[in-house]
Computed example of a mutant assay.
Amino acid sequence: MHWFYSSISDSKALLSDEEAHHATKVLRLAAGTEVCVFDGNGNGWKAILDPPFGKQRTASLVRKLEVEEKPALSLAVAPTKNIDRTEWLVEKATEIGVGRIIIFFSENSERKKIRMDRLQKIAIAAAKQSQRLHIPDIEGPLSYNEMLKAEAKAHPLCIAWCGDSERLAISEAVKKGEKPLVLIGPEGDFSPNEVALAIANGAIPVHLGAARLRTETAAVLSVAAYALHKSLQ
């Protein structure tokens, strides 16, 4: 069954222009086809496609699906030099389940520009593919200091870095019911000043095992580790 990201009003789903084109011109779905529609905020429905109206496409809602809770964990991550790796990160984190992805630029960041609209499209496609009803908020880009200032008092912070100081596993650092934000640095890791600033703002240093991981691998592993930990609680 095909899934479509839609805006919902009363008993109708209005597919976005891109989704309407895909349904009508690419998939050539006829009126009466059963589909799933979702709003990206945890709500989904079984629905029946209506006939096309110009470039628009609507669907009549039939049955509401079980509401999906928004994933508790969020990521703040410095984009990789190779943008394909950042896009892969967004795709896989969305599939596993992440609430927000905040893009920030660090002292050691080699990439200083990023297309946020493309990351949003990748997140939508990943949610559809994995049949998730939540699409993570894709936010930024921000400077590291801007990100810390905005988030330090709003969430428990965990900073994953490759230093020699004592660090906890994510499962040890996060208490039940908390909604943590995990900070992942760029190639070259966080600078000592950035680590000190995060800790001064309450961040708990965490590790992701003994191996030295790429930025995108560390980000996806942190989401997977948290999801597994939560499922076992």
Rank of each mutant, 00 (worst) to 15 (best):
V62P: 06
R57D: 08
P79A: 11
A72E: 14
V220S: 03
A196F: 01
F104N: 11
E19F: 06
V67K: 15
S165A: 13
F4I: 05
R167V: 03
Q233H: 06
L168S: 15
S165P: 04
A93C: 12
P71Y: 02
G40W: 06
K81D: 05
F4T: 07
L133P: 09
L142D: 02
M116W: 01
P71L: 04
S74A: 14
D189Y: 11
V223N: 00
T80P: 06
I135D: 01
M116C: 05
I48Y: 04
V98I: 15
V77F: 01
D189C: 09
K153I: 03
H134P: 01
A150K: 13
T86A: 09
E187R: 10
E34I: 08
I122M: 04
Q233E: 13
E110C: 02
K230M: 12
C162A: 12
P136I: 05
V220L: 13
G99F: 04
E107H: 13
V98L: 09
R167Q: 15
A200M: 07
R212Y: 06
I170E: 07
H207K: 15
K112T: 12
E68L: 13
I204G: 00
M147P: 01
V35H: 12
S11F: 05
A20M: 04
G202N: 05
L49E: 05
S109K: 11
S222T: 11
S222G: 03
P79L: 10
E172T: 11
Q131D: 00
L183F: 14
K149T: 13
Y144I: 00
V37H: 13
S231E: 11
G209W: 06
C162M: 12
M116E: 06
A127Q: 03
R115T: 04
S16Y: 08
L142K: 12
R214A: 07
F38E: 04
L142W: 14
